[in-house]
Amino acid sequence: MTIDELGIVLVTGVLQGSVYALVALGIVLVYRASGVFNFAQAEFGTTGLFAAFVAVEIWGWSYGWGVLFGLLAAVAMGLLTERLVIHPLRDASKVTLLVGTAGVALTAVGIQFWQNNEVPIRQMPKIVEGVAATPFGAAVTYQQLITFGVLCAVAVALAVFFRSPSGLAIQAAQQESTAAELVGISVRRVSMMTWGIAALLGGLAGVLAGPNTTFTAGFLTFGAGRALLPGLMAAVLAGMRSMPGAVIGGLVVGVVEQLGTLSALEQVHGAKALVLFVFLLAVLLLRPQGLFVRRAAT
């Protein structure tokens, strides 16, 4: 194990972690609004990616409009999920809600498999092709740098948004919905808004991570760009509540996962999955309230 190797782990981990952080932000938002682990979060991304791909490659739209269309598709899916599944189940137990979001994810995956049957493996072009730099010998593409940049911009934008009146309304409704209704905040609209923003974040993760490799149906859920489990883990690190925690958690999970590529673990099969599982168990058993929160999550 050399310094170079650790450097590669750190660089690749942080860049990969940016995608996880975007997913985690959406998961934390939804958890604060609806109290559910959103298993459809990564699927918002894949749906957005597919929509962007269809617009750019098949309809021949320009890249910018294609990405915008993809994000809109993701938001539409998020709003539909809230209306058709989350709202009818608002009084059900949390585990039922979880099964519901998993059902949403599966529906999307099924439709993607079906529509994508003829050419199962797709490739989305990158925003800017090429390698930007090679710190420690790890190739960093422009695409990855843009992803990291978008994450930083999103983090700042969210921080500003949650200090604006709409953002404060969301926070109020999430903390005490009855009291928020009494002072004139429509909890229903807040719930829609939260799911819309979460789906937008998922869509961003999808259109940014998709061009890195080829993609298939269920790309972000269990495909090549698997980000659901790392995203959920990052959200757990954030105690399911803290937005800055979700960003840092995503980056940490990215780096921890990359530890599985160290040459010391070369003999172990599926070392990344092993490292993630052990890390999750350690976090949950030692510090279940999350790493980046002071008080215990309630």
Partner: peptide, 29 residues
């Protein structure tokens, strides 16, 4: 493990466990 965790967190552990079994455990040739 599950006895120490609440429902949603345990669902997450089983998810990770499944991935770990699929990739690491079943990969031991």
């Amino acid at each position: 493990i599950s006895l120490r965790l609440s429902g949603l967190y345990f669902a997450l552990v089983t998810l990770a466990y499944g991935m770990f079994a699929e990739e690491s455990l079943f990969g031991i040739a």
